[in-house]
C-alpha cells in the first residue's frame, strides 16, 4: 500500500522507517511545516536526515502530503482535545477522497467518534485506530475479533509514564517530584508530562474503549478523571504496608469512563511495573483476558499502525 504519513514525531518517523519492511511504500511524509512527497515513493532515510539537519522533511508544503496519491493516510500528528483539529480535518479530507485512514492520534476517535464513523459510512475508505489504545498491545483488534457486544468492560493501566512514576515511588520510597524528574531524564516522561500524570491520556484511551464497546458518543468531557500528581510517597507506603500498591487505573464500563489512582493487590495482575501497560477485558463467555506489553514508544506504536495497514488489505 501507498502511505501518506502526517506527523514526523516518534511515531510518524517509525512508521516511515518500518513501512518498507511490511511491504508498503511511503508516498508522503509531513511534519507541521514541510513535507516530502513523491507518488512513486519517497526516500525515507533522506527525508529524515534532512529533518535532522534543516528541520524540514522536504521541499513541499504539509498540505501537499494530504493531496497526493495514497491508499492509506497515517494520521500521527499530536493528539489535540476538543475539536481534535487539525487531525480531524485530515481524516475528513482522506475519507472524502475515499481513502483509508489509520490513526495514531487519539483526538478524533476520543472527541468526535460519532462524526468520524458517520464520515466513514459515507466513504469507500475505512478508519482504523489500534495504535490509539495501549501502543503495541492488540487491544482494539482483540475486541473486534471477539465482537464488542461480548465484552462487558475494559480496564487497565494505560499510561506508561504514570505507571513508571508510581512503581518507582513505591519501590524506592521516593517523592513524586524526584521520580518525575528522573523519568524525564530517562526519556520516559516528556518535558510537559501533564497529560500523562493528570490522567488525561489514560482517559482518552478509555473513552475510545468505551466508544468501541458501547454505542459511541463518549468524549473526554464524559470521563471522571483524577491524576497521580498530588500523591505523596506516604500514600504508597501505607498501601505497601497493607500488601497493596497504587496504580493509575482506567475503566470503561457500562457505568461510564473513570480514571484515577486505585489500590490494587501488590502482586496482582494489574500491578505492572515500569512503563508496561495492561488491559483487562471482561468477556461474557470466556472470563477475563489480560493483554499486556509496551504501551508507548515510536517503533511499538508504529507496529500497531502497520498492523492496521495490513488489515486494510
Amino acid at each position: 500500500m501507498k502511505l501518506a504519513i502526517l506527523g514526523a514525531g516518534a511515531v510518524g518517523r517509525s512508521v516511515a522507517e518500518l513501512a518498507g519492511e511490511y511491504g508498503h511504500e511511503v508516498a508522503a511524509l509531513a511534519d507541521s511545516t514541510s513535507a516530502a512527497v513523491d507518488p512513486g515513493g519517497i526516500d525515507v532515510e533522506r527525508a529524515l536526515a534532512e529533518k535532522a539537519q534543516t528541520g524540514r522533511v522536504g521541499a513541499a508544503a504539509p498540505e501537499d502530503a494530504l493531496g497526493t496519491e495514497y491508499d492509506a493516510l497515517v494520521e500521527a500528528t499530536p493528539t489535540t482535545l476538543g475539536d481534535a483539529q487539525p487531525g480531524f480535518g485530515h481524516v475528513r479530507t482522506a475519507l472524502e477522497r475515499d481513502r483509508n485512514v489509520v490513526l495514531a492520534n487519539k483526538g478524533p476517535v476520543a472527541e468526535r467518534y460519532d462524526e468520524l464513523r458517520e464520515l466513514e459510512r459515507e466513504s469507500a475508505g475505512s478508519v482504523r485506530f489500534e495504535a490509539t489504545v495501549g501502543g503495541a498491545i492488540p487491544v482494539l483488534s482483540t475486541i473486534e475479533s471477539y465482537d464488542p457486544a461480548t465484552i462487558t468492560a475494559a480496564r487497565g493501566v494505560l499510561n506508561g509514564t504514570a505507571n513508571f512514576v508510581l512503581s518507582r515511588m513505591a519501590a524506592e520510597g521516593l517523592g513524586y517530584e524526584h521520580v518525575l524528574a528522573e523519568a524525564q531524564d530517562l526519556g520516559v516522561a516528556e518535558a510537559d508530562p501533564s497529560f500523562d500524570v493528570d490522567g488525561t491520556d489514560a482517559a482518552l484511551k478509555c473513552v475510545i474503549l468505551a466508544n468501541v464497546l458501547g454505542t459511541g458518543n463518549y468524549s473526554l468531557a464524559d470521563a471522571e478523571v483524577e491524576g497521580i500528581d498530588e500523591l505523596p510517597g506516604s500514600a504508597l507506603e501505607l498501601a505497601a504496608e497493607d500488601g497493596r500498591t497504587i496504580r493509575l487505573i482506567g475503566e470503561a464500563t457500562p457505568e461510564g469512563v473513570r480514571v484515577g489512582p486505585r489500590l490494587v493487590p501488590e502482586n496482582g495482575t494489574l500491578a505492572v511495573t515500569g512503563t508496561r501497560n495492561i488491559v483487562q477485558l471482561e468477556t461474557e463467555h470466556a472470563g477475563r483476558l489480560n493483554l499486556s506489553g509496551r504501551g508507548a514508544g515510536g517503533p511499538e506504536t508504529a507496529t500497531a499502525v502497520l498492523a492496521d495497514v495490513n488489515r486494510l488489505e
Partner: peptide, 12 residues
C-alpha cells in the same frame, strides 16, 4: 483525594 480499591477484581 480518595484512593479507592479495585475490589471487584480480586478473586476470579
Amino acid at each position: 483525594q480518595v484512593v479507592e480499591p479495585l475490589t471487584e477484581l480480586e478473586g476470579s
